[in-house]
Write a protein that binds this DNA or RNA. Structure first.
Lengths: 217, 217
DNA sequence: CGAACTTTTGAACCCCTTCAACATCAGTGG
DNA sequence: CCACTGATGTTGAAGGGGTTCAAAAGTTCG
């Protein structure tokens, strides 16, 4: 919680630097165990969250238990920026997580107003763009295309890297609107056709980026 | 900001009414015929649009022609506020439309900055919230639940009103991630079970709001 | 009215789900 | 080290919800 910067540096960075630093200064670091709830659906939304380490999923439940995962948030991502007063999705730690949490009001009082607004705006826009892609995927893609799109999204870093899958099959299925069995079958199929290669069920490499891209539609 | 002086109130009201006025003053009113394109996917996004009359749909195409409708915009709604430089969805007139169009930059120069930002923010938030509902619908609802949800969304005004369906079956299907045949079958089924009643294929009334709500899951 | 289009209805098919069994892996304790 | 156990992932077979294809019925508009 203590800043290691010389006094002068701190002052200049408060004005110009990223929201992350202000959040570090004003907020609280909280640790969440795997599957622990960070906030609930319909809960008041007056906090802002930033992933420090780990991965977070947002999700929504239908009354009979059907689950839809909204998105996954990785280190550095802001989440929980609902517009209305209430959270429309709940958020859970996908694995053990460290989350920086800060009250929106205290941020607004202390941070550079423009900087804060811009960061929230950018995070909201990112959410919207991803939601729009997600809608196309859920509405009009086949199971194979969904899985291929999902792997591409994870592997954006490049085709030759080994990519870790932080989430299990159930989370993937609930993100793609499929069952775990279908996800598993599609992964097996993609591996069988030499498009991707799984070292374990939580790590893969893309072998044929062009084919994967075509399959993702 | 919650001062109760009459003078203060008047001023804020003028401000909050002004975006539409400024758009009217600075922008151009354009008429679009049914199915005419308002802007294209991947097109530059430096304009802001407001529906004056008619209904607009945003949509995205997959390379093989599969279509996903993002949302419908009615009179008064702002649309086309993509965050990035390019439109991620195209927009088309669902029926003959009058649209007020204005350059973002000229708006920013002449309008109250805060007012403009707030209006864009609210419209973007509305888009995001609707997108999140849409994701749950597409990912985890059955055909019947999708159609029931769609009718409820249209009929929010109240159960006893006669509701006009501005869009055809194809647009409904492409919004719900179904085929026109399935949409038609579900509508027939809902009417058969006395939940809704269609005067024509473009107008209906809700007979059993409670049942419709339950069916929408 | 008649032509083009939209919507509804019917029947066969298929993609994905469901249900079930098996495999794999991590953690635990003997 | 291995047996045990529970969680997670894979594979197989059968079933069903939605699609596809085809045709009839309804609607719009010249």
């Amino acid at each position: 919680m203590t800043l290691a910067y010389p006094f002068e540096d701190v002052r200049t960075q408060i004005k110009s630097a990223s929201l992350a630093e202000v959040m570090d200064r004003l907020g609280v670091r909280m640790n969440f165990a795997k599957d622990e709830e960070i906030y609930a659906q319909e809960e008041d939304a007056d906090l802002i969250y930033r992933v420090v380490s780990g991965v977070v999923r947002t999700m929504r439940l239908l009354s009979d238990g059907r689950r839809q995962v909204g998105d996954f948030y990785q280190a550095g991502d802001l989440f929980g920026l609902e517009v209305g007063a209430l959270h429309r999705y709940s958020a859970e730690a996908l694995c053990d997580c460290a989350i920086q949490v800060v009250k929106r009001s205290s941020l607004r009082a202390q941070a550079d107003e423009g900087e804060l607004d811009r960061a929230i705006w950018e995070a909201t826009c990112r959410d919207l763009e991803r939601a729009q892609d997600h809608i196309l995927l859920l509405g009009r893609k086949t199971a194979c295309e969904k899985v291929a799109s999902f792997l591409m999204d994870l592997a954006q870093q490049g085709p030759n890297e080994a990519i870790d899958l932080p989430m299990g099959r159930q989370d993937i299925a609930d993100y793609l609107g499929l069952t775990i069995e279908t996800v598993s079958r599609m992964l097996t199929q993609l591996q069988g056709s030499q498009v991707v290669e799984f070292a374990s069920c939580r790590q893969f490499r893309v072998r044929r980026w062009d084919v994967l891209e075509r399959l993702a539609a």
